[in-house]
Nucleic acid binder design. Structure first.
Lengths: 349, 349
DNA sequence: TTGAAAGCGCTAACAT
DNA sequence: ATGTTAGCGCTTTCAA
């Protein structure tokens, strides 16, 4: 009957009430060694009666472990990261860990501040989708402090660590090939900043596919902006303003936000997809694809990014698994929801 | 030059290196009282050189404050809560707090476990979207422990506390009226579980609008399931199976997931919106509405739910603001993206 | 302006 | 099987 009107009940209070020492109470709490069943019962009752809740700060201070991990993503409102968070949280909960969440907004500085705060709070480990290659310094600090971490979705030049990333080169290659096979030859790439690993890789896959088809990547058709709607809108707007001779017949949006921005710009220009402009996207768009299921996309196993990353971290924490870093590469899946070139007017050269 | 190869640098180490006492270092860290500029500089240098990072566990234990808050939602992958989380996180970061995140999955038991874990970690306050009215016991425990909390999106029968909720009755009323004014008379309600406050309120608004129009709510047109896609699909499927005489001409989905499920079921049945079936939804669907902008919805100021709730909590923590509980009611906005009855074949009686 | 002592709540390591 | 001691890393007194 947890009636505990008390504010701060300590282990001593419980010990007193149960007529034992604090150590015995501690042993009951931690299920350690053998405690006489009789004693255990008395202690448990005292705990119940006083409404005692162990202070995790105190035990964390002593044990050097907090059963807490940190998770830093660039933007939790990006459906991709939303699902990563969900996956991490599930896995953490199953392992009795709690999760600190933080948004870096692609800012290395904000990210550094977050990491510092979390290290100060003595997290046992960190899951992070690094803001950019400039996150390297921050990660080196994390390593120096002896805090295990796993990179999610993006890795960082110069950092060797456990990581869970998508096959961005392969995915972009497949997506581009899809357009090429449909006869498109002027395919624009609307991408994020090249300082981000995923952006570089997706561009590489795109260029590889073009070259295989004997096409030289055209700088005029490559727009590097940021992973957000406004970037997609502006990029599409720019591409539409190109002279007819160079204007693309297809657009490859390198992420879901960019794709949405492109759709908006196309609609504003009264152009329809895919009749007037073909569009494919890296990353699916969760709910949206159910409502508007006409976009061809490269869908990543989003939740798995979170669950697997968390799993790697926990194995690190418990000392299981190999000591050298492990890199998990998750393969995305091409979802063809419409044929991007069915009504393509221009035929391949 | 933070070269700190050390693992655990304590305040003592810094004190030693700077030739002062630990107290002086502590004072420098906390900017408290006056420290000789000369001394301060020496201390700061020692901190830098050793790569010292204060242990928040120790200071939290002593001060009884951790600069940490908890946030529990039913499902972070629901775009509504995603934005709430984002709003909370932004506000927290601005106030130098970190946020523990947890998903209850509408389970009171999971919620209770989470709350207990967080209280053990001595959060300074809690933001929570309660799983249901049965969360009451858990919240009473939180209160007994003296941990301030703010209810987000849902309140709980029998609990008086700071809260930030939407005008669910009013929103549902307006949305229903919209359909009525377009001539619909057989309007189905696809709702969540009545144990959840928002579901009850949305139903009330719906019924109120019907009654004002002289229509008696028809139990056959009210389906209570859960706030998820599968529920929406099943509900729509059921409604479509009704005899033509009773079958609705419009569906009111009480949340975004339900709306998506309904759309899917309608599409499977080869029915188009709004020609064959009108559809309105409580809650907008972020990215989706950009791609498929043809759904009439009641959009809530989602981010504000988070920022305002966090604000209320922080004012509570700093002792600002009135001591009696404050209830903030946020007004949703009707977004008419298409006319749900423009092509309605049946005219009102 | 600075320091010394005491202790926040818990548990590891050693008794008994 | 249980208890005693000491101390995790910091800050709140109180004193100098």
């Amino acid at each position: 009957m947890t009636d505990g009107q008390h504010d701060k009940v300590t282990i001593q209070d419980v010990a007193l009430r149960a007529g034992v020492s604090a150590m015995t109470v501690s042993r009951v709490l931690n299920n350690s060694v053998r405690v006489a069943p009789e004693t255990r019962k008395r202690v448990e009752q005292a705990i119940e009666e006083l409404g005692y809740l162990p202070n995790a700060l105190a035990s964390g201070l002593l044990k050097g472990r907090t059963s807490t991990i940190g998770l830093i993503v660039s933007d939790i409102s990006n459906p991709f990261f939303t699902m990563v968070v969900r996956g991490v949280e599930d896995t953490a909960q199953r392992n009795s860990y709690t999760v600190f969440i933080g948004n870096s907004d692609e800012s290395v500085e904000k990210e550094r501040q977050y990491v510092t705060a979390l290290l100060g709070k003595r997290i046992d480990g960190l899951l992070i989708a690094p803001a950019s290659d400039a996150s390297r310094e921050t990660l080196e600090m994390v390593r120096r402090r002896g805090c295990p971490f796993v990179l999610v979705d993006r890795d960082v030049a110069g950092i060797t660590a456990d990581s869970v990333i998508g096959d961005n080169v392969g995915g972009a290659y497949t997506l581009t090939r899809h357009l090429l096979e449909l006869g498109h030859t002027r395919i624009a790439l609307v991408n994020g900043q090249p300082s981000v690993r995923t952006a570089r890789d997706r561009r590489r896959g795109y260029e590889k596919a073009l070259l295989e088809y004997g096409l030289e990547p055209d700088p005029a058709l490559i727009v590097e902006t940021g992973y957000h709607r406004a970037g997609g809108q502006q990029a599409a707007h720019h591409l539409l303003s190109l002279p007819a001779a160079v204007r693309p017949t297809a657009i490859f949006a390198c992420n879901n936000f960019l794709a949405v921005g492109v759709v908006e710009a196309l609609r504003a220009a009264q152009l329809s997809i895919p009749e007037d402009m073909a569009l494919v996207s890296f990353d699916d768009i969760e709910l949206a694809s159910a409502l508007h299921p006409f976009l061809t996309v490269m869908a990543q196993p989003v939740r798995s990014f979170g669950t697997i990353a968390a799993q790697l971290l926990f194995e690190r924490l418990t000392g299981e698994g190999p000591s050298q870093p492990r890199q998990v590469i998750l393969t995305p899946e091409l979802i063809v929801r419409h044929s991007c070139g069915a009504r393509l007017r221009q035929q391949p050269a």
